[in-house]
């Protein structure tokens, strides 16, 4: 052994977590790494593997990737047909685009509703602030499914809203089984995820900056536009991500509230898996969705890091 404690070969955890990762730190990091490996990396690899197979009748209902032929030759068969199908079949492309559209519109609506809420809560006086925050989080104490059913109770043909409209002699409006109902469902469900990160950035906003802006002649809306909004961008980004990402893959809300015309990738995936028992196709749809979601996030995070680094340097 040399006197130097630094190993010549850089260990994997040093590469991953930087120098000094040895000893206690590695132990602490081991648990989440193991968790993520077992419950995220391995399943993902399995899904990716299945996506390269083709549907077969049998158990499991897909072709083997590795087959041992005569004379002990091992053959690896990778089918790209599922991915080709996803790209060429307008059903999938339309479903992806429609999912992104619905998720994007829901995110924008949630932002438009959530921002004033978060702003108001952040500016509320102390005992009230906690009460209001509690009210935002409160719906989580009820089952998600129950809340979605409750929404349908409001929007059905003979539901609460149409009942109220009827009092004023207004014809009932078709709300259920429309995209509108899906938007209402997504925005309602994910609103807390928008409000909470926005609240955290807005509550940290130094009031003297707003006063300085007013002092320099900015009218309230100018102050909002050039001080409050830019300084709350991290909250906007975090909140939008927290709404947009789960909304893209949302399955329950479009199934319960949407109609047959509401096409979302979550439902396509469900149909492939359970109705068509086409596991490889379903897996390919899932992998493609992952790419669609992950790539923009990574790009955005990189851009954000660059901004943060530029600011703190």
């Amino acid at each position: 052994m040399s006197q130097s404690e630094t190993p010549l070969r850089t260990r994997w955890y040093t590469k991953l977590f930087g120098p000094g990762a040895a000893s206690g730190r590695a132990l602490v990091i081991f648990a989440p790494v193991a968790w993520l490996t077992v419950f995220f990396v391995v399943p993902l690899a399995v899904v990716f593997g299945i996506s390269l197979a083709i549907k077969e009748f049998g158990r499991p209902p897909y072709s083997d990737l590795l087959t041992v032929g005569e004379g002990g030759t091992v053959q690896l068969t990778l089918h790209l047909s599922n991915y080709l199908r996803i790209i060429t079949d307008p059903l999938y492309v339309t479903a992806y685009l429609s999912s992104i559209r619905i998720a994007a519109i829901s995110t924008i609506v949630a932002l438009l509703i959530g921002y004033p809420m978060a702003y108001f809560i952040a500016r509320a006086r102390d005992p009230w602030r906690n009460v209001l925050l509690m009210l935002v989080i409160l719906p989580f104490w009820t089952s998600f499914l129950l809340r979605v059913y409750a929404l349908s109770g409001f929007m059905r043909g003979n539901g609460v809203i149409n009942g109220l409209l009827g009092i004023f002699g207004i014809e009932p409006i078709q709300m259920m089984q429309t995209d509108f109902a899906v938007y209402v469902g997504i925005v309602y469900t994910y609103l807390p995820f928008m409000v909470l990160p926005l609240f955290t950035t807005l509550v940290k906003l130094d009031v003297s900056l707003l006063e300085a802006s007013a002092d320099l002649g900015a009218k309230p809306w100018q102050t909002f536009w050039s001080i409050t909004l830019p300084l709350s961008l991290p909250g906007i980004a975090a909140g939008s991500m927290l709404v947009f990402i789960p909304a893209i893959g949302e399955f329950v809300i479009p199934s319960l509230l949407g109609g047959p015309s509401t096409l979302m990738i979550g439902r396509v995936l469900w149909d492939e898996f359970f109705s068509n028992t086409n596991w490889p196709r379903a897996s390919a749809v899932a992998v493609a969705m992952l790419l669609i979601v992950v790539v923009p996030i990574m790009l955005m995070q990189r851009a954000q890091d660059a901004v943060v680094e530029g600011r703190t340097r």
Binding site: L209, E211, A214, D215, L216, G217, L231
Partner: peptide, 28 residues
């Protein structure tokens, strides 16, 4: 405040962190 012929230098300076020095000065 934004209609008063008065300007204030704040105790914490209240410089806008997302703007450069020149943008800060140019704000008013």
């Amino acid at each position: 405040p934004y209609r008063r012929p008065v300007n204030m230098m704040f105790q914490s300076y209240a410089l806008f962190p997302h703007m450069s020095v020149a943008q800060n000065v140019a704000y008013g």
